[in-house]
Write a protein that binds this DNA or RNA. Structure first.
Lengths: 344, 344
DNA sequence: TTGTATGCGTTATCAT
DNA sequence: ATGATAACGCATACAA
């Protein structure tokens, strides 16, 4: 493997000149530059990343921290589109992306400490679900910039984060249904332990208020994100004497049970009740009828989080930022009138 | 950040002694060892990975190469369980895992070349779908050990790979149905461009032959992995004069359309026709009725691929290996007799 | 514009 | 059992 010395020898210059050429130092003459570039090409030379890192005290590496034990991050299929978005930005800047699992322990210290103390990383991107004050302090003490994927749940400190605009998404769902002439819009699957759920409900309420529609607490049903709970919650709504004509499902699995409940009651979707959900998971388009959703661009979430991180790396003093990414409606069978439910 | 020099000073020994202590060199006396360990702890010292790497010519890093443009790898939800399996093994050995996207280009060279030439990686794990002879030659020339995730499609060279035992999985599906007293087992979704599909069909045939059942070519329907094709293929079977009493779906999306087709024909699942599919994707348990599957342990796939890679790193001369991981049946509603299809 | 020399934090070689 | 020192490949301060 050719080193910078070999290149210098081949080009008949000093290693300094080679180094300067590589790093685009303007003080190199055009001819020298050509010579060096040719030698680099001839020798198929590439700088040794570790030598470069040691010398410049920069690992040129970003860490994506995950938590396998947390279903909401690692096993969430979205998470990997996020990763792809991050990856794109990271490699564009000629950095590397390393992925590590928070719960991994190495000789009594966790991976993150190990990576930081070993100077293996210049910044960290991590899901909000694994951030607490202790972690924030640790990162700050070590001067490691970090960005949270998702709005943090309950944190005294302000930190940098990127999230989907869940409030606007909630509004969007309601406006879409109202535009379709729906009068009674229900909201099922509210989970006060999840920030995104809180935000979506806020959006729901805001849209109703904006549209001069009285808020009916009976149309809000709490529950977790599963098809079983979706079924239960929808049944609860259908047992009331004044049933809704449309329903917003707070999370992606809820609609599956809810649709089933509506069908079991002999009602038609979307004629009698239309259904809209969030996230553009594969499931939404696979089930019958396919589920209309408020689409979420998680690739963009990754891109923006990485960009924010690089800003922090480049300008360490920057104020903490919060960034929200907009959503859009994807119309499918659960809200289209006159559709044939059984069509394939 | 404390360096090895600081530790040496604090412990009153030379840097050599500190280095030896860290690396468990047996020639260090017990007392010296204690002193050094104490100094390390006091100073919160951790070796600088880049200095270590430069000196020992080892990056202590493994690369997981993916291809975002290839839906069969990066966007496949399984892929990330694989990653988790890899990650576990990699960090256990105090290596790092870096993830890179093959299609990323850096100054006219692809990421892989960049990583290799920069000496950033000691080995590569990559999906079989992106392996060709050119890539094999490149890796071999650079002495970079690698393991393929999945049996390679059409490659002259022998290489190291790990895969699910798809042939056995095909047998397992058929045996399971025959044990349930099924007489005519169909196989839909055969795709000759996919190795796993070929293997599953081989298993199907082997199981029938083993059970002294005549093979009926009319029960094999070719098609791609989508719900639309699943519907089409099942309809084709149902239009014959001698319909099957059970069907094996070659891939995970096919069952969704097939189930719909059966229901549209007024037949009952599983009473009239039972359905079994492969892979344990979330979808299988979410749809109504939930789909029985031959489960695939992709976490284990990751673990084994990483273990194989480390073997190659430690013993460079090792012969090429092929490893198959076994599967098991997960019984759900599409094969359970007397189930209530509409139960939640 | 170019070159010399030093240092980054380790490991390894050769002493003692 | 321990230490002094060179070497890894690059960046950079200083010189010319």
């Amino acid at each position: 493997m050719a080193s910078i010395k070999d290149v210098a020898k081949a080009a008949g210059v000093s290693v300094t000149t080679v180094s300067r050429t590589i790093n685009n130092n303007p003080s190199i003459s055009i001819e020298t530059r050509e010579k060096v570039l040719k030698a680099i090409k001839d020798l198929n030379y590439s700088p040794n990343s570790m030598a470069k890192g040691l010398s410049s005290n920069n690992s040129y590496t970003i860490t994506l921290l995950v938590n396998v034990e947390d279903e909401k991050s690692f096993y969430n299929p979205f998470f990997y589109e996020v990763m792809h978005g991050i990856e794109k930005v990271v490699y564009e800047r000629e950095y590397c992306l390393i992925v590590a699992n928070l719960s991994t322990m190495l000789k009594k210290e966790n991976v993150l400490d190990w990576l930081i103390k070993g100077k293996r990383t210049e910044g960290v991107i991590l899901p909000s679900s694994i951030i607490d004050s202790r972690m924030v302090k640790g990162l700050r003490n070590n001067n490691i910039p970090f960005v949270s994927l998702g709005e943090p749940t309950s944190l005294r400190e302000t930190i940098n984060w990127v999230d989907i605009n869940n409030r606007k998404a909630g509004e969007q769902a309601v406006y879409y249904l109202l535009d379709d002439n729906r009068k009674r819009v229900a909201f099922i699957g509210y989970d006060s332990s999840k920030v995104f759920s809180i935000r979506r409900l806020e959006g729901y309420k805001a849209a109703l208020e904006n549209s001069k529609i009285n808020f009916d607490a009976g149309l809000i049903i709490e529950g977790r994100n599963s098809k079983e709970d979706g079924y239960r919650m929808m049944k609860a709504l259908l047992n009331k004497n004044d049933i809704p004509d449309s329903v917003v499902c707070a999370d992606n699995l809820i609609s599956i049970g809810a649709i089933r409940a509506i069908q079991d009651s002999g009602l038609l979707i979307p004629q009698d009740i239309s259904v809209i959900s969030f996230d553009n998971s594969q499931i939404a388009e696979l089930i019958y009828p396919s589920v209309s959703t408020i689409n979420v661009d998680v690739f963009e979430l990754g891109v923006q989080s990485a960009k924010m991180l690089f800003e922090l790396i480049e300008k360490p003093g920057t104020r903490d930022q919060e960034l929200l990414i907009s959503t859009n409606v994807e119309e499918r069978e659960t809200t289209i009138r006159n559709n044939q439910q059984h069509e394939v």
